[in-house]
């Protein structure tokens, strides 16, 4: 627990990061299934309550000059810390479009990057393309 305090606001989004990544990139269906359905959408769960409390109690202790400081939303804190906004932040932006990270987009500028997709186009190897079906 002490380590978490040392990391400050960055600690909040690092929690569960590894297992979340493992679930998303896992090839086993059970992992993905528990990632999707492990959390309930409704607010009856005790876990949700706990998270709400810790959110309220948290907050950086960087500047204590002001007695009252506005509470920042979790997403804003993470954006300030340079991390990606949490998927399941209670007030996450409601948009079906996914924000592609700039570095992922920049990778397509590289020479030969598009060529790796050749077999997904009809100009590529049809045998390779149909192997996916």
């Amino acid at each position: 627990e002490e380590d978490d305090e040392g990391l400050g606001s960055a600690a909040a989004w690092k929690v569960n990061m590894l297992e979340r990544a493992a679930a998303l990139f896992s090839t086993r269906g059970a992992d993905l299934h528990s990632y999707i359905y492990g959390t309930r959408a409704t607010s009856d769960g005790a876990a949700q309550q706990m998270r709400g409390l810790s959110l309220g109690g948290g907050g950086g202790s960087d500047d204590d000059d002001e007695l009252f400081r506005p509470k920042q939303a979790q997403a804003e804190q993470q954006a300030a810390a340079g991390g990606p906004a949490a998927v399941d932040a209670p007030d996450a932006l409601d948009s079906s479009r996914v924000a592609v990270p700039p570095e992922l987009l920049a990778a397509w500028r590289d020479e030969g990057a598009a060529e790796r997709l050749r077999n997904r186009f009809v100009t590529g190897d049809w045998g390779e393309g149909e192997a996916r079906a």
Binding site: A41, T42, S43, D44, Q48, G52, D88, A89, P90, D91, A92, D94
Partner: peptide
């Protein structure tokens, strides 16, 4: 059904 927050409104 009860929910929390503005996500998935």
């Amino acid at each position: 059904l009860r929910f929390r927050g503005a996500q998935c409104f």
